[in-house]
Nucleic acid binder design. Structure first.
Lengths: 203, 203
DNA sequence: AAATAAATGTGATATAGGTCACATGCACAA
DNA sequence: TTGTGCATGTGACCTATATCACATTTATTT
């Protein structure tokens, strides 16, 4: 592979990770991938550091390479409600703010030390406009994301706290390695005390 | 406008409605629109008729021209949980099933007499592959849909039954003209009795 | 290694909202 | 127009989950 854009010489493993991610849905030539790569910037965040805070302008979307991020809102009583976790291979941002170009209403914070690849809204749009393939990629990604949220809504509508917990455990076992239980509670919409009781009684 | 594809001579108003819908995000020539149109089929459904039932194969996506549809699941106690309503200008299907090409786990039912335009999965994919514009259109549509679901999740996480009800009332006042209250309850994740009490006490 | 802070567990109590039962109103079918 | 069946309202009671308070365990920092 020829490194045309040297200023973007990420670690080889990181690049390959991104490329593999794209190539799950589309095929890319080396040249195409190199072209795409120039729009991404690598960034590391320490545990509990923010990529976004409430009120910040949102200009980028983040692809997680390593670690884990969470996006959440704080309500009027300062309780956190988690919108999304992002493990490696996931995209995350405050999409509402990104699309409507309004200030963030969320916090985007590293749960553990994390590495992301960032792309700005404009660069992503440009990439989609220039390369039909990429527009396709992101349309399909979006469709999966949509379905995921539908599933979450359904589990909130139909399941008890316990059922939702067990579904999550089954669907994303990796999360439980990384994320404190109070965060899982804030994701499930249950108090941390209730969550704690759910699995202590379970065994 | 030249009617190249006569077998698709929908009522002029219907065609224009679809065209306006696309042209909110992209621009189309008459010829392009005529080409697109050939992939759509018009269909009318009576109140309480099904477009999909649990177990059906899901081959199509539906664009509502007139009326109102709801998609919902039935749980083990035969309680219905509503995933989505679709008023005119909205798309609806069992997306999970459509994308994964598995049998429907939902019912798709007309709340009132309804007219839709149907497109098959294959035709939509073909349209997206052939016309970059259309791929763009659906990517952006998807992105808005995603944001909408995020908002719904947030309101389920942060709000009381009453707050959720009021948010819905404010965001989609049209729904309340058309949809029985028990369906609104099934959408909000509240019992119909509780919902009834919410607004009787309100006044 | 000690000190401090964060996360978790657990009991006692409170409450939003669910469930059940039945009454009333309203729509459409015969 | 009358009847049959949905949709809605309302009371009485019940239950899952929240809240508060504090103890315990586990990470972080110095």
């Amino acid at each position: 592979m020829v490194y045309t854009y040297l200023y973007n010489a990420f670690k080889c493993a990181t690049m390959q990770f991104l490329r593999d991610h794209f190539e799950k849905l589309i095929t890319l030539t080396d040249k195409e991938f190199q072209y795409i790569l120039q729009f991404f910037r690598s960034r590391r965040i320490m545990k509990k550091q923010f990529l976004l805070q409430e009120g910040d302008p949102v200009t980028q979307e983040y692809f997680v390479v390593k670690g884990c991020l969470k996006s959440y809102v704080l309500d009027s009583e300062d309780r956190s409600h988690i919108m999304q976790f992002a493990l490696p291979d996931w995209w995350i941002s405050d999409y509402q703010a990104l699309v409507t170009q309004s200030p963030s209403s969320m916090f985007l914070e590293a749960v553990v030390p994390t590495q992301v690849l960032c792309i700005t809204r404009e660069d992503k749009e440009r990439l989609c406009a220039e390369m039909h393939k990429m527009e396709h990629f992101f349309r399909i990604k979006n469709a999966y994301g949509y379905i995921g949220l539908q599933r979450r809504i359904l589990s909130m509508l139909t399941g008890s706290a316990k059922e939702r917990y067990e579904q999550l455990l089954q669907q994303y076992p990796d999360l439980f390695q990384v994320v404190p239980k109070q965060d899982l509670a804030a994701f499930l919409g249950v108090s941390r005390e209730t969550l704690s009781r759910l699995y202590s009684k379970n065994k």
